[in-house]
Design a protein around this nucleic acid. Sequence first.
DNA 1: TTAGTGATATCC
DNA 2: GATATCACTAAA
Length: 169
Amino acid sequence: MKLDSEFFHRDCLEVAPDLVGKVIVRTFENGDTVRLRITETEAYRGTEDKACHASKGRTPRTELLYRESGIIYVYLCYGIHWLMNVITGEREQPQGVLIRACEGFEGPAKLTKRLAVDKSFNGESFTENERIWIEDDGLKPNIRTDKRVGIDYAGEEWASKPWRFILDK
DNA sequence: TTAGTGATATCC
DNA sequence: GATATCACTAAA
């Protein structure tokens, strides 16, 4: 079952664990289809979350975070890597879920490389899209939580939040 | 441990 | 216009 906008229209702290175990489907121009189970996500929640891009204020880049849920937010990290996020929650409320890893592709940049996701997906919809979407295949996985990684700059208070969700086999 | 990489934000 | 920063990876 393809996830609809209702799924994403919730708080990122609900959507993030729910996305774990779901399947990203990507269709390529040459007809190939790739299906990858999501194994790791992280929640980024609002202006008060120092690790969230929107915490420093509304800018052209973070504008997407304020938009409706279910759209894709892709951005370039360290000049080389594309990281993929999904916008969740209410409009005007900057929050989203970072897709960190999929089965066999552990790492946000490996994931986007495999799915050939780049800037052109920024602002696209996950719910009305021919190229990429997410499916629920009925799996009810065990999920464990952990601290988010790579955000030491956000300070101890935010870096220690258990807002990382990992598929537990 | 370090280099590589480029968009963005912030500072002139 | 210039530069400092960054939610990473691969190679050593």
